[in-house]
Each structure stands twice: as C-alpha cells, then as structure tokens.
Nucleic acid binder design. Structure first.
Lengths: 325, 325
DNA sequence: CTGTTAGCGCATTCAT
DNA sequence: ATGAATGCGCTAACAG
C-alpha cells in the first residue's frame, strides 16, 4: 500500500480510503490511485484491515450435510445475499454431529466473523456458552420449534408432520410406515416423525413399520428400504419418508416392481425439491423455502433487526398434494 | 493473548506457540496456557496471524454452479481434505461466466489465500495475468484437455465424448440427438459434444437434433427437451445428454409416456451420480471421480509436488454401460 | 524449551 | 479532502 501511495503521490491512508470506498476522496485522486494500484499489480488485503477494525468480512456457516440439496440451496441463498455487501460465507459440515458442530463453531470464531449461521435449534452447552461469551450474532435456521439463541428463520417441523398425517388420514389410509435415515441424528426429521406418529395414534390408525438407515439419505436408500418394507406380510398402506430423496427412491422401487401408487401404497416426502416435478408421478410432499431461509438469515446478519423484533421468523412450509396419495 | 500470558505466567509468545501447536512447549506450560485461555474465554484470532506470516489458512475455490451435485461433491472432497490441516475453503460461484470467475478470483486474492482451486482450463487473460503477478498457487480441476497454469486434476472430456460415441455406434445406432444446457456456456460439455459429433460424422452416422436449454441443467429440463425431441417426425435412435440430470429426466419422460428404452430410443448421460443407481433402469453414463478430484487438488495445495512432477494429473473417467443403450 | 525485538498490512483517530 | 501518528493481534527470527 505504501508503494501504491508513492506511485500515486499520495499518503498511504488515502490509498486505504480509495480501496474501501469510504470517506471523502476527490475523483482525481481516486482514479490516480486506482491506476497506480493496477500498474504495480497491488491487491488489497482485506483481512489485514479486519485486524485493525476488529471484524472481518466473513460469516461463518455450519450445515449438517452437503449430500442433501436442501443445504446447498440454503448455502446458495446465503452466498447470493452476502455477495451484495462484500461478505463471504466460510462454511463447515457437521455431519449431524453436535460435537462436530461445536468444534466447527470454535474454529469459525477463530476467524472473527461478523456472525454465524447454524442449522436447527439444538446445540451443545459449550457451544451456547462460547456464543454468549464472545457475543457473536447467531442466526439459527430451518426450525422454529424451540428457543433460538437470538433469532431463528424457518418453520415448524411439528406442524409439518401433523399436517401430513392429517392429510393421509383424511385420504382414508389407516396403516402407515416411516422411512428415515442418518440413524435418527436428524433432529428435525425426528420432530416431524414424532408429530406424525402422535396424530396417527390419536386417530386410532396404525404405524406398522419404522425403518431408518444409518447412512445419509439418498434415492438408493429409499429404494432399498421401501423394498424391505413392502416385502412384509402386512405392508403399510402409506409411507412417510424423512425427505424427497428417500421418497423418490420409493417411487422408483414401485415403478420398477409394478406396484401401483397410490392404489397399493401411498407415498409422501418432504422438502419439495425441484427434481420431483420431473418424476413420472408428482409425489405428495411438503415444500420448504430453503433458499429464502438462507436469504433471510444472511440479510439479518447484514442488518440485524431491532431488539423489539421477532425472535422467530416464520417462513412457512406448504403441503403439496401430488399423485402419490 | 497478553491477558492469557499474564494469567498463565508466561510470555505472550509462548501463548502464541501453544495456540498454533508449533515449536517446542513443555506439557506443563501447555496445559497451563490452555486452562488460562479457557478461564478468560479467549479465542485465538488466526487471521491476525496471517497478517504477520503473509498468508491465511484459506484456499479460494471457484465453482461454476451449485445446482449440480458434481461440484458440491468436488467441494466435499476439498473440504474434507483441507480440514485435516486446519485450512478452510472460501468459495464463490461463477455461474459459468468467465468474467464472474475473474471477479471472484480478484476478490479471493484479497484474502491472501494459500492457493486457489478453479474449474476448467479456460480463463480470461486478466485472470491469468493476476495469477502470475501475485504468484498464488493454482490448481485447475475437472479437465485435462489443454494447458494448465501450473497443475490440473481431472480427465479428458474429448476422450469421454469419443468413447461414448464409439460405444453407441458399436451398439448399432445410426441417428443421434444431443441435449445440453447452460446455452453452451459449459465448455467441458462442449468439448464432449464436439468429440462425440466428430466421431458420429466420421462413422457416417447422423446427428439429427441438438437441443440446449438456456438455463441450468435439471431433470425437469431433460424431461421437457426429450419430449420435444421425441415428437419430431424422425426422432433420434439414441440421445447423448450433457449430464445425468438431463438423462434421468429423459428416462422419466420415456417411463411416463411408455416409450421403451433402449428399443425405441437409447439414452446416455454423464457423471455417474449416485442417484442413478436408484432409477428403474441403469442409465449408460461416464463415471467421473468428482470427490477424488477435489481431494487431489486440495492435497496438492497442501504440499505441492516438485517442479519435475506432472502438470497434468489424470483421474480417469470410466464408461459405464447400463440398460439404456 | 522460552523470551525479546521487530514489524506484518492495514484502519482509527485525530489533526489540518 | 487528505495526512501523521499510533496500535490492532499476532508471528518470524533470533537469542539464550
């Protein structure tokens, strides 16, 4: 920066102001400095400045997985929004482990970020402690069933599970199956399932099978588990899947085996991912606003709401009735 | 750090060494410092250190899109590998625009990264210039058809296109269609297509239709374009898709319309994404080592090969013959 | 194994 | 509208 200053015949401080576009600078000096910088091949070091001003143009993001489009879409929303003000997301993947999430948060704090974006409302005590100790701003996403540390953006999974149960009950189904993944580590899926199961029980209907893979969700797993469930003596009349990938896999199994949907078995997914509209049958699901949640969380970190504002920002998920129920 | 030093009764430099885990520190002092830090609630500022040591624990990554699993898998490989040595990827999305890529590189250099990971071998002149001016290490990925700035990791798209053409010709097909996306901005897809078309022509077979969506690829687009192509008076006997999403959409169209595959029309995709194995028919495709490419590039940045080493690291893609050709 | 000295590349806070 | 002095939090280089 000194070199640029000398080249442009101004002080180092003026170069700094030009680089950041702050304060008053005359047009002449501005162009002079820019061309001097280009001539020397100078690239502004934004992180060194963060040292003096005590914050960096960074937002830390922790997502549970990258195997599910849901979170890459959230990330897209975050990235697109932060881009507008020169911030960048720095992310980590927790693989649905609270301890891994805790480690990641510790690591990301090491970067002195403007804020943090986490998934879900359940975190380790140590994580909560460090957050309040350091005072970083935190946006929690994807869930509103619980108490956020400061603000959360998302929807109620309990409501989503109930709503789907009611829909299927209303359609006349009385015996149900559930297919999940991640060995139950996905706590939001667990909330949906519990709410779903409760409504089923209250209605006097049956939950005849619950299957959960121990690995990440995928169409393959969905197909395999559906095969397993449908081989039983008394297969369920309707299957609720933890997400669309699993449900799509279920549909693929039925297509391949000639099982008629929804006559023999009804299927329901969760998320409303784009690829679902390309399947031969539109699968009943709950459409979630992933991208918008990312946008909302990022926007909040860029300009936090006043204290008086809501601690829970609802971005509702909507039941989408397809041709599989 | 001063406060921690005082609390632990050592010098600030010793605290620095403990935080970074470098140099020789006695076990006693080490534990003393750690507990002092915890007591005060001190979080190490790693970016301030980057100031003094002239680079940060960061690798800049530019991917063309996040809509395609291919690149999120590359990112996963990069992330998992960098994690092992405390580095983090900081990424940007170019949306297949060379100018956007250029801007992103300029921005990422502002972070003083240890290195850069880019996609493809085609970049703007300004980008090449800044790279050589600043001397950052750059790994280019996904392609080996061309000259890397320093090292590239991937496979030949020309070979992949030729190989698929030869396979389909060998199966006896003589009239072909091609379905792509991104309005031709995906240069690697373009390489495959050109090689494919050349072999077709050389064999005396026909390329009867070429369709390209102007938007990102998806199953929906694949389904729509397949519908369009199959409506023609002389539909092709085999369709080569720019990627698996499009091909899967094509298969969905055929399933929904009762078009028999491969009897009426053969289908071939590209990438060999995991979800393909869940489809009712295994689609013929070329399996690409996305994750491994991310791993290899990241590993190289962590410990660059000697000058004498290869400038092109081949991670071969393999033809996978399925039930759709 | 630990401490001292010097300074990384910037931005803040005054001045003018 | 621009500049000078000062310090941010940390690490390199060396001494011991």
């Amino acid at each position: 920066m000194h070199d640029v200053a000398r080249e442009a015949g101004v002080s180092q401080m003026t170069v700094s102001r030009v680089m950041r576009g702050t304060g008053y600078i005359s047009k002449d000096v501005q162009t002079e400095v820019v061309s001097a910088a280009r001539k020397i091949g100078y690239v502004h070091n934004r992180l060194a400045g963060g040292n003096a001003s005590y914050d960096n143009p960074i937002v830390g993001v922790v997502v549970p997985t990258m195997q599910n489009r849901v979170f890459t879409e959230v990330l897209s929303g975050i990235n697109a929004t932060l881009e507008t003000s020169g911030l960048r997301p720095v992310f980590g993947v927790s693989e649905y482990s609270p301890e891994a999430e805790e480690d990641l948060v510790f690591d990301l704090l090491t970067w002195r970020p403007q804020g943090l974006i986490l998934s879900g409302l359940e975190h380790t005590d140590a994580l909560r402690r460090i957050i309040s100790q350091t005072g970083v701003r935190v946006a929690e996403t994807m869930d509103t069933d619980g108490d956020p540390m400061s603000v959360c953006f998302g929807f109620s999974h309990i409501h989503a599970g109930e709503e789907m149960a009611k829909h299927l009950i209303a359609r006349g189904y009385r015996s149900f199956g559930y297919i999940g993944s991640h060995g139950g580590l996905d706590l939001r899926a667990a909330k949906r399932f519990e709410a779903f199961a409760r409504v089923i029980r209250e209605t006097g209907a049956q939950l005849v099978s619950v299957e959960r893979a121990h690995t990440a969700s995928s169409m393959e797993i969905g197909r395999t588990l559906t095969h397993k469930v449908m081989q039983r003596e008394q297969p369920p009349r309707a299957i609720y899947y933890a997400n669309d990938d699993l449900a799509a896999g279920g549909l693929m199994h039925c297509l391949a085996e000639g099982i008629s949907v929804p006559e023999t078995v009804a299927l329901a997914g969760f998320n409303g991912l784009g690829f679902m509209s390309a399947l031969p049958k539109l699968v009943t699901t709950t459409v979630t606003p992933r991208y918008d949640i990312g946008v909302a969380a990022a926007r909040w970190l860029m300009a936090p709401l006043a204290k008086s504002d809501a601690h829970k920002v609802e971005l509702p998920a909507e039941l989408q009735i397809g041709q599989t129920s």
